[in-house]
Write a protein that binds this DNA or RNA. Structure first.
Lengths: 132, 132
DNA sequence: GTATGTGCAAAACGTTTGCAGAGAT
DNA sequence: ATCTCTGCAAACGTTTTGCACATAC
């Protein structure tokens, strides 16, 4: 299934670059604010359109944490997250869920498991220590 | 920390009852529609207010799946979910993530992990079979 | 009697869309 | 020349809020 041909625009590459470089899992609004510094005429609608497009192409990922709006993640490898409820920081984690666990659920359900999302919530080291 | 005293109202108990009995992880709008059948004068704002309140008290849970709006879950025990991308069904699953895995991440991060959310995505048995 | 809870309507919020013109191919 | 992409503004769906009245305590 050949998808519509995509053109390369300043707007699109800036959006990709921002998300890829960001370590903060930015929201669309945050990407927009950063993008404006490099390309003042860029519009929020364009940021949204490109975020979806890039996510569809697998070049970035959409992630959503409790109580937050949609965020974007430049880390495209499979991974998990930790969110601090005190300072809000989101840390990327390597895969911790054993493949055998996924396989076992899959066969128990008789379903196909294509992916999963695993988010840990709590208090990060820094906040834990400053609260002590 | 003594929280404000809570009053017991028809509206609140109906909202709780609906979510507790539901097996479908309903949205606020769905809870509202069902509630109207028993209490035609109930307002959507009241449904929202009570859903938040009950979630805060731990009597129900807020859950959010990819591409969906916030849903409510009457199952308060720790558990996980499977979502079918074809028919949209959400199945409750018992805990699959080994406690040792959580403990290991916690010590690696030096953080406190209070809870986690684990959602599996794929195609359920029924949809898998009807597609074959 | 007092303060919480409610219904209503309006506002807020994040996101999407229609459109006419700009720009990539 | 074509067809995608853009900026703008308006629309959208969901959720929250201000207010005056109702109701649980």
């Amino acid at each position: 299934m050949p998808s519509t041909p995509r053109r390369s625009t300043k707007q699109r590459s800036i959006v990709l670059e921002i998300v890829a470089r960001a370590k903060t899992h930015p929201t669309a609004e945050e990407v927009f604010t950063i993008a404006r510094k490099k390309l003042p005429e860029i519009s929020l609608a364009t940021v949204y359109r490109n975020l979806h497009l890039l996510a569809e192409e697998g070049k970035i990922r959409e992630v959503q944490f409790e109580g937050s709006t949609l965020r974007y993640d430049g880390m495209t490898m499979e991974h998990e997250h930790f969110c601090c409820r005190s300072c809000g920081v989101v840390e990327d984690l390597p895969v911790s869920l054993p493949a055998a666990t996924v396989a076992s659920i899959q066969s128990q359900l008789g379903a196909i498991i294509e992916r999963y999302s695993l988010d840990y919530y709590g208090v990060c080291q820094r906040c834990k220590e400053s609260a002590a």
